[in-house]
Design a protein around this nucleic acid. Sequence first.
RNA 1: GCCGGAGUGGCGGAAUUGGCAGACGCGCACGACUCAAAAUCGUGUUCCCUCGGGAAUGUGGGUUCGAUUCCCACCUUCGGCACCA
Length: 817
Amino acid sequence: MAEPIERYIPANIEAKWQKKWETDGLYHSDIDKSKKKYYALTMLPYPSGNLHIGHWYAMTPSDAHARFMRMQGYNVMFPMGFDAFGLPAENAAIQRNIHPKEWTYDNIANMRKQLRSMGAMFDWRREAVSADPEYYRWTQWFFVQLFKNDLAYRKMSPVDWCPKCNTTLAREQVWGEDRHCERCHTPVIKKDLNQWFFRITKYADELLNFSTIDWPEPVRILQTNWIGKSEGASVVFKTEQGDPLEVFTTRPDTLWGVTFMVLAPEHPLVKKLTTPDNKAKVEAYVQESVRQTEIQREATDKEKSGVFTGGYAINPVNGERVPVWVADYVLMTYGTGAIMGVPAHDQRDFDFARKFGLDVRVVIQPKDMEELDGASMAQAVPAEGTMVNSGPLTGTPGDEAIHKAIQLIEEKGVGKGAVTYRIRDWLISRQRYWGAPIPVVFCPNCGAVPVPEDQLPVMLPDDVEWRPTGESPLKLHPSWRFTKCPQCGGDAERETDTMDTFMCSSWYHLAYLSPKNPDWPFKQDEYDYWMPVDCYTGGVEHATMHLIYTRFFHKAFRDLGVTKEAEPMLQLRNQGQILGPDGQRMSKSRGNVIDPDEQVRLYGADTVRSYLMFGYRWQVGGPWDPGNIQGSHRWLGRVWTIFLEEGKTAADTTRLDRQLRRRVHQTLRSVTGDFEHFEFNTVVSGLMELLNDMAEIKENGGWNTSAWQEAVDIYLRMMAPVAPHISEELWARLGKPYSIHLQPWPVYDEAAAAEDEIELVIQVNGKMRDKIVLPVGVTEDIAREAALAREAVQKILAGREPRKVIYVPGRLINIVG
RNA sequence: GCCGGAGUGGCGGAAUUGGCAGACGCGCACGACUCAAAAUCGUGUUCCCUCGGGAAUGUGGGUUCGAUUCCCACCUUCGGCACCA
């Protein structure tokens, strides 16, 4: 009997190999034009202090996939960095009274260490940290380019303001029914501030085009809804004083059904339209609306409210005089902030009209309904039908009406076909300290002047009062704030707001190309070789934020000649979330946080990696199971002993060899496909199954034959992406050349995988009754005969002739009796 | 209200194209090894049963020789949007 082998102890091998790989630069990725490149990218972490098990869940399967692609012969780049600016640094710093910079960089140092314990193939030479001046210099440079090309502008605008964080929030940073701040959960309020915006709306249409990218359908739908394109017409009414009053409508066909108009309380024409005897109540209503929170205003179940201005407008299609009201169900932020009221065919307008006793005029008669009557109808009818009471449009069938109406208003010169989007321009100003300063100087003579490129970066000063006062902290730093105008040299003032961190993360995939490039955001040859990103992995929660911004960014800079292609990331795959063992989101307050470091101490990195890949559908995720992970640990322990411990070799191994090769190559086929499809759980289960078969074959005397050698070789290569340390160790112990991670993916042998007999399932009337073993390629006649001869079949048929027989070659025969 | 994802044993999950439901793992039970335990190994494990079978993939229908898979109508749950004109 063989000597007992030492046990599998991950701690003895993992750190050792990590160090060697690092020393050898095993995962350095350099331009190599002889190979096809593969840029694999996983979303970079925010340096919150500790790596979360969620980071492992996102990153280690992505790493396994990147490793798989590398073994497939690609030159793979898989970089890592830190999204290092942002609010939490300030909040944490305020709590602990340490400088945000210190807090952030301490966290980064810690997280680097934790990231290394994953055994991932990150090329650390390419690390990028968005809070480094050499990084945000280029963030600012990108801003300047947008500014110079009229893609950045400043305007006074009401913004969502978090009173606790003392800052502006972007719309997508406001969550929930009570519209709270995503960070501190305080309900947000509105505030008017002068803010910088990027013209993302200019790219709205192009952002709707996903035809060149392989992104998950849910993300495409989320973005499509977020952009919210609606087509219709803009129509210009005239107030009685002669001011143009423009509305947007998706239903220009209902123009003859307009019985009133409604302005948003903030609409600039409200004041002018209001007659003296209505002034008091209109002003009261407007003030009340403005004071209300957005939640109160936007509650959809709220009864309609509003007041009559006393003013009238003229309907340009029929010259009718219609009353103009003010109501808060019309939003200043969408369309033109004014609507035409068509109560007969729009439920909201209908509710409003009934409440205030306004006319309801039917202009569409649907086919299958009895004749509508505006005075008595109980609800609006938005359906299609034949136009009635609509002047030149009367009699037009529903499907032509909109088109014809647009033609008509265009001929009359009172409007035109128009498109409106729900997406708004990207607000990037933050009244915070820990961000990239917006590189603009305000000069009394020259206005807003961008800081010249050769003076970048505008350094973020360290000596700042970063505790929140409601003002931008940089405003309180006089020697930084007051400067000279770069254009005229006169006294001037810096912009004291910093940029939204989504600006930093919009281009980090470019920073990785050459993180310390002195004269351009990236080295051109690196860009030309690596871009675009071939595979991007991360959470779906970024669908309407980062993932839309980075697409916009690329398109804008393509138009400015900086980037080349329209889309930065060709393939996107989303992972799900790991929840606490209680099925709830992990949080410190719930005490259900799983610490990856502790799991690594208990089981080793390979086990944690394997379990995260094996235990969940990657795109779904689920609760952490403290017991289940042991299955993955046992698997690795079994691989260890079965591969290292001597077994016995039978005299004749022909059958066992054939069987083993078949199973190895069948597994190779399925594992390869599963890796390609990001189905990591079946990658691991396939390997587990093969191991079970190998254990049995070894037990039966199939050990150490050439088929066995091949099996071990292929097995280790297949598991190398999943469990890189143990496979490297076993590879070395079995005397194979360093490193397994430089080996090509094994070659699939179809002949070896082929079965030479089939197990045919016999159904009678659709129910499984029996099975027979038949040679591969058996004819239907023989299969049929063999099946009908079976006792179980005969018994059920009881002498009857089968009415029909369905034969699925190699799989199944169904006898219908 | 609208849009999207998910519902399969005690649990995580599997099931190329409509073709053996429950692979693999956890847990549990029994057994081996051990003075004992841990670790490890082996056997069994959807449910009901009169041991012939029968039922079962959220619910109810439908298409089909055959449905976890396709169609229709619902239910539960998670996420997004929500007076968007």
